[in-house]
Amino acid sequence: MNKYKRGEANPAAIIVAIVAIFMVLPPLTMMSHMFNIKLTGTHLWLIVIGVIVIWIIAMYNSLVNARQKVKQASSGIDVYLKQRFDLIPNIVETVKGYAKHEATVLEQITMLRSEYDNREQGNMKQNQELNERFTNLLGLVESYPELKANESFLNLQKLLTKVESQLQAARRIYNIEVTEYNTKRLKFPNNIIASIFGFGEETLFEATEVERQVVKTSFDN
């Protein structure tokens, strides 16, 4: 990650800002005398406190924005996961005719797919089992060459390739936003605001053991 991105506060800049505030105070006092404005020590402290409060609000909002971007990226993954899962009924139908002794796997996937529809999608963890079983099924397809020559299956595979590619991109975007958010919440003085207002750490997306195994299987084949 870039050390400091555009628009992001950094410790050196914050120290400079604080020093600048204290350098502005004497001329401000002088000006108040020149223009007959009665600016007392209390007023000046209120100005300083006001600036600090504005600064705290800015940091809080920046953390909120970063967290929202993580949520947005997470929902982006869900969109493509849904598209992937929407292909399941068609794939199961096509596979049924060729892979009769995978009936158990197909039944489990169909059941999980119904549960997914009933709970209105849910989050990544809830869909993990369905995702893993589906990934397993795709790995099993490698063992059925007649299936791979089937035109319907080929068309479905093309759609699946497209969705997989979009899903991969969505996951990368999610990880970028999570890394940025986590880095922001750990940096000083954001970490103070983060701990006061409860900005917790977000988890990066990682491939499951099943997904890593399927990749290995594909490579072995």
């Binding site: 990650m1 870039n2 975007i173 970028i176 936003e177």
Partner: peptide, 10 residues
Amino acid sequence: VKLDSPEFEK
């Protein structure tokens, strides 16, 4: 668009 390569982003 943000990307996941610091060298590229620079």
